[in-house]
């Protein structure tokens, strides 16, 4: 089973890297970019086939390690 965990910064947390990318896009002449927030994507391969178990494991992975919930939100998707 394939799964994806997406980690993004919470609203209101300053993201200097996103700001720098935003500036670079503007200087490259890419039109219409209002703002950029940088995040992380984890593509995870799971050994079992139980979707509920997989979601629980991924949630645990995100809470324990993948995200720092002080500043980050995460989203778990089991892709099947």
């Amino acid at each position: 089973m394939k799964a994806r965990v997406t980690v993004t910064l919470k609203t209101g947390i300053l993201d200097p890297q996103g700001k720098a990318i935003e500036g670079a896009l503007k200087s490259l002449g890419v039109d219409g970019v209002a703002s950029v927030r940088q995040g992380k994507v984890f593509d995870i391969e799971l050994s079992g086939s139980d979707k509920a178990k997989a979601e629980a494991a991924l949630k645990q992975a995100a809470d324990k390690l993948l995200a720092n919930t002080v500043i980050e939100n995460y989203r778990v998707e089991v892709l099947g």
């Binding site: 947390i13 300053l14 200097p16 890297q17 720098a20 720092n68 002080v70 500043i71």
Partner: peptide, 11 residues
């Protein structure tokens, strides 16, 4: 300890 250490504001 509480809080977090983020990228330096000046990058």
């Amino acid at each position: 300890l509480p809080g977090v250490l983020m990228r330096n504001a000046g990058l």
